[in-house]
């Protein structure tokens, strides 16, 4: 292992150090854009909360990509390693959608079934029973 690293290291000393700093500036710039947008929203109300949250999530994934790919060097590993690391993480897609949907549905149920709420929506099946 050390053979490849030293050979590679000496040849690309400057370019790989440059790449590290480039990644740093990208991460810093993205964070500053995020904070800037948050302030813009506080001052002017633009962009709207929903749009802003979407942008924040996308920029977070961008930062995660640079950290994993450059700092953790995964981008330069062979495909076998990339797949064994990334494929299990695909579970998160289902994990996030299912649980946030569940939370939202819980909120709606709580609101609709609160004491004192008109119960037209829940009445319909009860009437059906009455006909028999």
């Amino acid at each position: 292992m050390e053979h490849t690293h030293t050979a590679e290291g000496h040849a690309h000393h400057d370019s790989s150090t440059k790449k590290i700093w480039k990644t740093f500036w990208i991460l810093l710039a993205v964070t500053m854009v995020e904070v800037g947008l948050a302030f813009l929203h506080l001052e002017t109300g633009f962009p709207s909360r929903v749009l802003l949250n979407g942008v924040f999530v996308i920029l977070t994934v961008v930062k995660a990509f640079y950290i994993v790919s450059e700092f953790m060097h995964l981008g330069s590993e062979i495909k076998n390693l990339i797949y064994t690391v990334l494929l299990p993480l695909l579970l998160f897609i289902w994990f996030i959608i299912a649980f946030l949907y569940e939370g939202n549905s819980w909120k709606n149920l709580n609101r609709d079934l609160k004491p004192g709420t008109p119960i037209e929506a829940v009445k319909a099946p009860a009437e059906g029973h009455g006909h028999h």
């Binding site: 939370g103 939202n104 819980w106 909120k107 709580n110």
Partner: peptide, 8 residues
């Protein structure tokens, strides 16, 4: 996130 989504 789930708890936050379930809160009004």
């Amino acid at each position: 996130g789930t708890i936050r989504f379930s809160s009004t």
